[in-house]
């Protein structure tokens, strides 16, 4: 079991390394992609400077906290898209019958599939996240906490993408549902939770768990709280588990189904 996990990780890392090597063949494009993503995120600072010129507190956040919120959102999203790019297009992979090549390998189909490519611009997101942390005030504890929260949040983001994409096993084309869901996560993640009320707030901590991937990490970073930390980690485990079970159930259906998903 342990060696199996080790071997699986080795293959995933090798995929990432090879993907990175491919992207680096054109150095100019590579650096441009990364830099522009950093600038992209930075451009929204203007928005917040304007908003904070109107009011000192927005949704209970100070300006610095908003920067931290952006930092966490960016590195969470960046980690997810850099390491698991294919999780966000899993619907296409299913519909084009491209799972077959993973099915004949003696590895976990889902992991092999979603780690098979990287997204370069996501490196810019990750870097931006740490730049924001630097501005917010960096300490060793902060750094570790920030990294840990980005990874656990990123895994939730990936899990949700997998769950939504896996709907394709049942309903054929689900890419627009998955895209919409992923967009929902990103948009909410970049605004302070205090501006939302009522049902929206409940949704943000359940169905659209931005609250767990981004808001709680900001709270934890502002003032460490073991309860919130446990909620984040437990949710992460829960979403990963759910993603695997739904994907695997779909995969069984894919194999045994008499619906023609791929071409004969």
């Amino acid at each position: 079991m342990l060696t199996a996990v080790k071997n699986q990780i080795k293959v995933a890392l090798l995929s990432t390394k090879y993907g990175l090597m491919r992207e680096m063949t054109n150095k100019v494009t590579f650096i441009m992609d990364v830099t522009f993503m950093i600038l992209n995120n930075a451009s929204f600072i203007i928005q917040w400077i304007i908003l904070y010129s109107l009011k000192d507190d927005i949704g209970g956040y100070t300006f610095k906290q908003v920067l931290l919120l952006w930092g966490i959102a960016a590195s969470t999203y960046g980690f997810a898209h850099f390491s698991f790019k294919k999780a966000f297009s899993i619907s296409d992979t299913i519909n084009n019958g491209k799972l077959d090549s993973y099915l004949v390998q003696p590895k976990n189909v889902l992991i092999s599939c979603i780690t098979s490519d990287i997204q370069v611009s996501a490196i810019g997101d990750i870097l931006y996240g740490y730049i924001m942390l630097l501005i917010y005030g960096i300490t060793i504890q902060n750094f570790i906490l920030f990294s840990l929260l980005s990874i656990s949040g990123g895994l939730i983001v990936v899990s949700i993408a997998v769950i939504l994409g896996s709907l394709s096993f049942w309903i054929g084309k689900s890419d627009s549902i998955a895209d919409t869901g992923n967009d929902l996560m990103v948009k909410f993640a970049t605004y302070p939770d205090g501006i939302f009320k009522g049902i929206t707030k409940i949704l943000l901590f359940t169905l659209i768990p931005v609250g767990i991937t981004t808001y709680m990490p900001v709270w934890i970073m502002t003032e460490f709280n073991i309860t919130y930390m446990s909620i984040v980690l437990a949710s992460s485990a829960f979403f990963i588990f759910t993603a695997f079970s739904i994907f695997n159930r779909g995969l069984k259906r894919y194999s045994s189904s008499n619906l023609m998903i791929s071409k004969i």
Partner: peptide, 24 residues
């Protein structure tokens, strides 16, 4: 159909700004 689905993204931003302005 794609356009109609795309509207969702648009509405989302309006919704967020609705909340934001309400707070401010």
């Amino acid at each position: 159909l794609n356009i109609v689905i795309g509207i969702f993204s648009y509405l989302l931003l309006i919704f967020i700004f609705f909340n934001l302005w309400n707070y401010i």
